[in-house]
Design a protein around this nucleic acid. Structure first.
Lengths: 345, 345
DNA sequence: TTTTAGTTGGACAATATTTGTCCCACTACT
DNA sequence: AGTAGTGGGACAAATATTGTCCAACTAAAA
């Protein structure tokens, strides 16, 4: 059966391009609801003319309706989209990519969504959807889920209601508040996850970054201690992977610290650890939150990060990521990852 | 699964065209062996430039090798071709056509090969291959197979060795020699079938067309009688369908007879009977050979005829063909057939 | 009601691509 | 040595694609 697919690919190699392009457009129309040609073309990064050509085609095929108020997907379009979901995966070679990454980094699983979430909102939204779905698969009722901050993780919230069934999960913030937007902090995200799924949440209202003295003191506080003990009971951690420099900036690190981090060759960040390109932790922030060692005993780790420019950061973290990690990323990052690996060898 | 195919067709409707075109070229290269661009383009009815574009593509895909001596198919190309055989059928909508014809004419089965054997040697050769394969499927060891004359039937011989397994079949000529080329006579064909399959053959060395007197006399001859009795033991008849006027000409019919036939509105011919467009036998030649009545008790009838211009003839015969008939034809004839049927209704 | 921001479809010149058609150097046979 | 066939290079002509307008229209907002 797979043989047949490969034969088709061999004899009509331009097929994946066409398929993906139209899939992207159709998906965009589905997600955007009623949308015009120009807005659409911006969304899918195609010229207005090309979008027009393709939408005309899709219209002719009865997959979309196209009235003077805008374009909308038809039921048939939705059906086609649904049927094609898996094929897209196969035709795009994403499955091979997934296997490749899973093996090179020794991970539990890799899921790649088509597109590049940096350029494309669709990919971003797919990333969130898939993450939500995975979260549902990996959790049992009443378990504890630790979540970190960042835009990618935050965006998962809107798909949770749809994909996560009633399980009364408890969401705990995996780290304290860092100097960034409230919407992107672990605290807020844990709370929003809880709201979306009718679950509970426990939050850490502490600055992420503390002086040694204050840190030690706080660790003795019963409220904090109790919270930290939750980390040992955590079943699933869902976290992002950040670019080192960007995280340092968002944390409002001092110029000296930034310099230290930079000189150490840090490229990626996760859980307060900065990793260089070989995956070694070269710098650590005395962070309040889940610790690297604790991660190893967690059942499932859901690493969600996409965008081609984040590839280096992702790679650096994955080098020593626990083997029970499930990576959810996008085509852009994945391709960049294997490219970088190729260049090394 | 079929759903998926339809979804693909919906979103990439140009796929069948590409697929078929390249399939045709690849098939042509396979059949022709080492062949040049210009000869090839003639074979597949494409301009030299387009053939070039496609062969370049196929070469790049590693499906053919392309040296200064000519182009040849690679093993991979053969594999692809083999895998794609069934898909081509589906994508081209031939399966639907087959079902349609099978129902309208109440036949046992219809097999349609892509292309038009009138314009395209590939279709012709496919027709032969499929017929050979079917013959293999429908026969049991030591059975008797009756064969008629004509180019289409004659061309089956070269594929018999490949497709028909050792069964020691006996081939009998279904009719006597008619005034045409030796190579196209039933006698010769029966003999060549026997040679190709290591079988036996019995031939009728009698003119097909006799005076009444001579006919009656001959029917009393023991040698002939014995031969004719074989027809009752025949398990499979494999026959062509001819255009009425063409057959009359090939038979060297007298001008008067031709006129009679023409006036009767005959369009098709088989087994010495001329049929008008309603399928009624309007003229009969006192032919030495298998009789229409005998056909009805034969287990399997393999009707092999292709080419769009033969559609009328094929249709006229099929109107009253025995229900155990298996029709093997080509896309050109099949499409023309349904078109004519549509025009009537 | 008017305004406004959005929509499609038409138009068209600029630009790319495809196409038909040569020719040339080469090769495998005769 | 001759010949019929080969692929690849080249290039003008034809055709298709592309970017970019604009006009007419629509629906919702003001």
């Amino acid at each position: 059966m797979n043989n047949l697919l490969q034969a088709q690919l061999k004899i009509v190699p331009e097929m994946p391009l066409l398929l993906q392009k139209r899939y992207k457009i159709l998906m965009a129309i589905l997600l955007a609801g009623e949308i015009g040609r120009r807005s659409l073309s911006e969304l899918v990064h195609l010229t207005e003319r090309e979008t027009r050509k393709e939408t005309d085609l899709l219209n002719q095929q009865g997959l979309i309706t196209i009235r003077s108020a805008g374009m909308e997907i038809t039921q048939e379009g939705k059906d086609v989209l649904d049927t094609l979901k898996d094929v897209i995966h196969e035709w795009s070679g994403l499955i091979q990519l997934e296997q490749q990454l899973q093996q090179t980094y020794n991970l539990s699983r890799v899921i790649i969504v088509p597109g590049d979430s940096e350029e494309n909102n669709l990919a971003k939204s797919l990333l969130g959807q898939v993450a939500a779905k995975q979260l549902n698969c990996l959790t049992q009722p009443k378990q504890i889920v630790a979540v970190t901050g960042g835009g990618t993780i935050a965006s998962i919230a809107e798909y949770l209601t749809q994909f996560v069934k009633q399980k009364t999960l408890t969401y705990v913030a995996a780290r304290g508040g860092i100097g960034e937007e409230v919407q992107l902090q672990a605290n807020t995200i844990a709370a929003s996850f809880a709201t979306a799924t009718n679950g509970l949440s426990r939050t850490l209202y502490l600055p992420d970054h503390l002086s040694e003295e204050a840190y030690n003191m706080m660790m003795k506080e019963p409220v904090i201690k109790e919270m930290l003990e939750l980390y040992d009971q955590t079943s699933v951690v869902i976290h992002g992977i950040g670019d080192a420099m960007e995280m340092a900036r968002r944390r409002n690190s001092t110029p000296e610290e930034i310099q230290t981090i930079e000189q150490a060759g840090a490229v990626g960040e996760a859980f307060g650890y900065y990793f260089n390109k070989d995956g070694k932790a070269v710098h650590r922030i005395r962070t309040v939150g889940i610790q690297l060692k604790q991660l190893e005993s967690v059942q499932h780790l859901l690493a969600v990060a996409g965008g081609s420019s984040k590839a280096t950061a992702i790679g650096s973290y994955l080098k020593h990521a626990p083997p029970q990690t499930v990576l959810i990323t996008d085509e852009g990052a994945a391709k960049e990852l294997v490219k970088q690996n190729r260049d090394i060898n």
